[in-house]
Amino acid sequence: MPIRFASKPGLVVYLTAGDPDLDATREIAVAAIDAGADVIELGVPFSDPLADGPVIQRASERAVARGTKLSDVLGLAAEIRKVRREAGLVIFSYYNPVLRYGLERFCKEASEAGVDGVLITDMIVEEADEYLKVLEAHGLAPIFLAAPTSPDERLARIAKASRGFVYAISRTGITGAQQTMTGDAEQLVKRLRKYTALPIAVGFGVSKPEHVAALGEFADAAVVGSAIVAIVEASAREDAPSSIARFIKGLRPAVALAR
């Protein structure tokens, strides 16, 4: 499936796979898709999540402690794909688990599982020659991060290497919810537009309907991560899917009404 954003703004939902357990992540992902998520990012838990704030750190720690592995996340992706054919599926990981698994093997199995794209937090375009080759051979979309600190020549390279969508980071910093969005995001999206016709999704710190509405003015999609993971953390296991569905519908009241 190519990655598509059916409504504007589109919605990308990040989940730490295996928190609280793999079955729960599957149920939450399905509920999120049914509530309107266009793309699900399945986060591979890692021992050293240096780009993440406390919420995703804690979720990763719990999932690693349960023994969640990359192979489990690929299995989870296949299960979600079996029951929901339309939504985009992205594997979101630090590089080391993928490297350890074997890039070729990972891409082959991800592709077979019905995964659409891959985002590696600590992969930059300069290091990506081999990575891009293998992803392309397996029909997987490489999704790169663009930062407010990236100069234009880097944005051009990032845009050129990306498929599916470009992930624009709303501000300098680690993942995590915040009260207000800064002006960095709009500037970044404007600069990125010069180099790509791909959809641009804005993430980091997106947690409220106001944020999503504001982003909708200039970006194609919003990425919601820590806010979702925090609800999963705070919910009883059996309530998590419905809590997430309610939260997602509330993020885009107009879209929810139209559906």
């Binding site: 240096l50 780009a51 590089y95 937090t121 600590d122 992969m123 930059i124 300069e126 290091e127 790169f144 991060l145 663009a146 930062a147 407010p148 600190t149 990236s150 100069p151 880097r154 990032i158 980071i169 300098t172 910093g173």
Partner: peptide, 12 residues
């Protein structure tokens, strides 16, 4: 060696 960092750090 190389560089495996979040994009935000690349400019720095």
């Amino acid at each position: 060696g190389g560089r495996f960092v979040p994009e935000t750090l690349m400019a720095a």
